[in-house]
Design a protein around this nucleic acid. Structure first.
Length: 426
RNA sequence: GGAGAGGUGGCCGAGUGGUCGAAGGCGCAGCACUGGAAAUGCUGUAUAGGGGCAACUCUAUCGAGGGUUCGAAUCCCUCCCUCUCCGCCA
């Protein structure tokens, strides 16, 4: 959420910055609402002060011996009553405005960072760096073909169990998935991340705090009988881990690495990536998350991204880092690096991680502050995949495929699997 | 799901209609005392929003929302949450 004070004082700045995202907004009405709300608050609190004064005087007079039903006390009571009603009327208006304001503010995305390059859409994203040596031989298989051939996944039967866009992992496939989760959590653990296994059913407040609601309700699965949703990413529970808290500044930065299954409706992507492990309603992910001081967030963003890249490098997967342009930023992000892994079979790079700094946007929504000396201030939050497990497996299969039909796996996984090669079933 | 108990400041804990943002204690910070420390003493120590250059000041907040009242932490209603016991259960 954006700062109401900024809205009151400088709505042009907001429109201009959101303009970089491609939004055309006239915020003068919203500004008027914000100002009117503040004026009402002023009026109301002055009236309340008067009411408090009268209440005290009544008490003093009665205790001083005046009759509770005497004329002067009676007069004060009537005054008090009148004020009470006026206050109630003002409060009603104020609440209505407040609600309107909040509702509209919650629907506005974050301001892009000054460091975010301008651009319309993904075509304007900037390749920042490339790592590794992509295989480009002809005749390489795509991951679902390999997975199918090696008996790692069963897509068809998953439809029977659930729907399309679900996958069941079998045998070596299930083991590899589990190994990747463990490997990533272990790796991040050595870098100071605290491992977290959060609830994957989250309430509305949690989804609102991290920015998925109210705008993107159609992207999440909801439980009909409860105020609970299936989380689309561990970013949601991790943000709310500290919702409504004031954190002593000397405890920052706080860093978490969480494994969770993630659930997404993938509305509007019919027909895209229908095969394999790329786009599923349920997938596994290890998520990295930072809470830090505002002045640290830029460096934190680089570090978090490096920590995600370290996974790809350890797994010997070629990748490139993109900096998203202003028009391609996610709702809560001020600045984002996407990591794209090379898929040798498909012959393309595919997103495998998205590392964002959200400035104080989520912190304001979720009321997460830090305390240093006296007074509190909003902190900054950052998140990034480290990494999406299914896409990692896809990359390992495509990049590691061998002429003999086996798949060579990176050495770092051997301790988890007991071998470094997937062989076709005998 | 059934029965009961309870939700007060960073923590513990008083407070059943009147000047209570809230006694007392602990913790924390500053000062004094000390060679230094402990102990002791004094002072201070919530959050949000508004006004003010500032000192400061106004309003709200005792789980949440509504009600009674001139006035509510205290009374009434609804809801949420926590704990204990029973049932069920991985």
């Amino acid at each position: 959420m954006l700062d109401q004070r900024l809205l009151r004082d400088n709505p042009e700045l907001i429109s201009q910055q959101l303009g970089r995202r491609g939004l055309v907004l006239d915020l003068s009405d919203l500004q008027a609402i914000a100002r009117r709300e503040r004026d009402l608050e002023e009026q109301r609190s002055a009236l309340q002060a008067e009411g408090n004064r009268i209440g005290k005087e009544v008490g003093q007079r009665i205790q001083g011996g005046a009759s509770a039903s005497g004329p002067e006390v009676q007069e004060l009571r009537e005054q008090g009553n009148r004020i009470k009603h006026e206050v109630a009327a003002l409060e009603e208006q104020e609440k209505a405005l407040e609600q309107q304001l909040r509702q509209q503010l919650l629907a506005l995305p974050n301001l892009p960072s000054p460091l975010t390059p301008d651009g319309r859409d993904e075509a304007d994203n900037v390749v920042v760096r490339e790592w590794g040596d992509p295989r480009r031989e002809p005749g390489l298989q795509e991951h679902w073909e390999i997975a199918d051939r090696l008996g790692l996944i069963d897509t068809e039967r998953s439809t029977r169990i659930a729907q399309s866009r679900f996958v069941t992992l079998l045998g070596q496939g299930a083991r590899l998935e589990r190994a990747l989760i463990s490997f990533m959590l272990d790796l991040h653990g050595t870098k100071g991340y605290l491992e977290v296994l959060p609830p994957v059913l989250v309430n509305t407040a949690s989804l609102t705090g991290s920015g998925q609601l109210p705008k993107f309700a159609e992207e999440s699965f909801r439980c009909a009988d409860d105020d609970l949703w299936l989380t689309p990413t561990a970013e949601v529970p991790l943000t709310s881990l500290h919702r409504d808290e004031v954190i002593p500044a000397d405890q920052l930065p706080i860093r978490y690495a969480a494994y969770s299954p993630c659930f997404r409706r993938e509305a509007g992507s019919y027909g895209r990536d229908t095969r394999g492990l790329i786009r599923l309603h349920q997938f596994n992910k290890v998520e990295l998350y930072w809470f830090c001081r505002p002045e640290e967030s830029e460096a934190a963003h680089e570090q978090l991204t490096r920590d995600a890249e370290a996974v790809l490098e350890a797994l010997e997967l070629p990748y490139r880092r993109l900096e998203l342009c202003s028009g391609d930023l996610g709702f809560s992000a001020a600045r984002t690096y996407d990591l794209e892994v090379w898929l040798a079979g498909a012959g393309t790079y595919r997103e495998i991680s998205s590392c964002s700094t959200c400035s104080d946007f989520q912190a304001r929504r979720a009321a997460i502050r830090m305390k240093e000396g006296k007074g509190t201030q909003l902190l900054h939050t950052l998140n990034g995949s480290g990494l999406a497990i299914g896409r990692t497996m896809a990359a390992l299969l495509e990049n590691g495929q061998q002429a003999d039909g086996s798949v060579r796996l990176p050495a770092v996984l051997a301790p988890y699997l007991g071998h470094d090669r997937l062989l076709p079933p005998a």
